[in-house]
């Protein structure tokens, strides 16, 4: 109920503005589920990640608001730009953040929507992954280049099951918009038991998309010194890290909307539970190599998603 009441309240108190134009888009973009809500959820997800990971390792872990403190701290530090790097070094994190911030505006919890916004979501999320690679290549360091090339390889690998499972869901819901898919689930039940293979394929690409074990080879800290992140510092690193944290929330929420939607508060709870599951999977896995992940995504997950697509089309 709450997302739909606010626009009414604002209209009553700011009656002149409400007469002149529609405030709903501004609220959707800036507050819920736009900038403010997404930022809060991103920091919450990141804080949960560090705390749960620590507790599972018999440690205490930082307080839940630590990612917020880290962001503020990074903004105050000097951001060094290597000599060999280009203009894209600064713009890659900014474009990455902008692209992931677009996606929550289209969520069916009081956001805007239009037909076909699912396709926009897929492409916009790809932009943020490519920006990771671009940041790595533009940093002028061989470690960054190796990280960037690995990111592109992995993107190429998990694109196939991602696209196929999303198309399967869209065909099942007879709509290419998130609101339409949510509506189809409210009417006919959650998709995860109707399209189980597509669900498994989609969930398996999530660690690769957000940079968690077992598929976080592009950002491997111990091996290639952080890959694309190696030369970033100060505000550029703050923006890049924040973009990653927003990606945690956005990709998990996308999984919930596509396969587990019932209504908005169950969306939040399932999001948290799914995030806990992925933290757990990260904790118990080592990092697999690029060629091994390629085989996994193309052969196994691709075929799995294809099975469901065929099932739903027939």
């Amino acid at each position: 109920m709450f997302p739909y009441r606010w626009p009414v309240l604002i209209r009553v108190s700011a009656v002149r503005i409400g007469d002149l134009m529609d405030v709903q888009p501004f609220i959707s973009v800036l507050i819920v589920p736009g900038l403010l809500f997404t930022s809060v959820m991103a920091f919450l997800y990141a804080g949960m990640y560090r705390k749960v990971r620590a507790r599972m390792q018999n440690r205490r872990g930082p307080p839940f608001v630590q990612p917020f403190y880290d962001f503020i701290k990074l903004l105050s530090k000097d951001s060094i730009k290597p000599e060999k790097s280009g203009m894209l070094f600064t713009w890659a994190p900014i474009i990455a953040l902008a692209s992931v911030l677009i996606v929550p505006i289209l969520f069916p919890i009081g956001g805007l929507s239009f037909a076909g916004d699912l396709i926009v979501v897929i492409y916009v999320l790809n932009v943020s992954a490519i920006m990771l690679a671009v940041g790595g290549f533009s940093s002028g360091s061989p470690f960054g280049a190796v990280g960037g090339s690995r990111e592109v390889t992995q993107l190429f690998a998990y694109e196939l099951p991602l696209a196929i499972s999303m198309v399967a869901v869209a065909v099942k819901a007879s709509s290419f918009s998130l609101v339409g898919i949510a509506g189809a689930q409210e009417a006919g039940g959650m998709f995860f038991y109707q399209l189980p293979f597509a669900c498994i394929a989609f969930l398996s690409i999530i660690p690769a998309k957000i940079g968690l074990q077992p598929f976080d080879i592009p950002e491997a800290e111990q091996e290639i010194l952080g890959g694309p992140f190696v030369e970033y510092s100060g505000y550029r690193l703050a923006i890049f890290t924040f973009a990653n944290q927003v990606k945690y929330f956005v990709v998990i929420s996308l999984a919930v909307i596509l396969f587990f939607w019932r209504n908005w508060w169950q969306f939040l709870i399932t999001g948290f539970l799914l995030w806990l599951l992925f933290i757990f999977v990260k904790i118990i896995s080592a990092r697999v190599k690029t060629d091994q992940s390629f085989v996994f995504f193309w052969q196994y997950m691709g075929i799995l998603a294809l099975v469901d697509l065929v099932r739903v089309v027939i």
Binding site: M56, N58, F280, I283
Partner: peptide
């Protein structure tokens, strides 16, 4: 190891708050 990781969520941490 998976079971231990899950159960450690509910146990007291090993670290001392020195």
């Amino acid at each position: 190891m998976e079971i231990e990781a899950f159960l450690s969520l509910f146990k007291k941490p090993f670290t001392v708050k020195y």
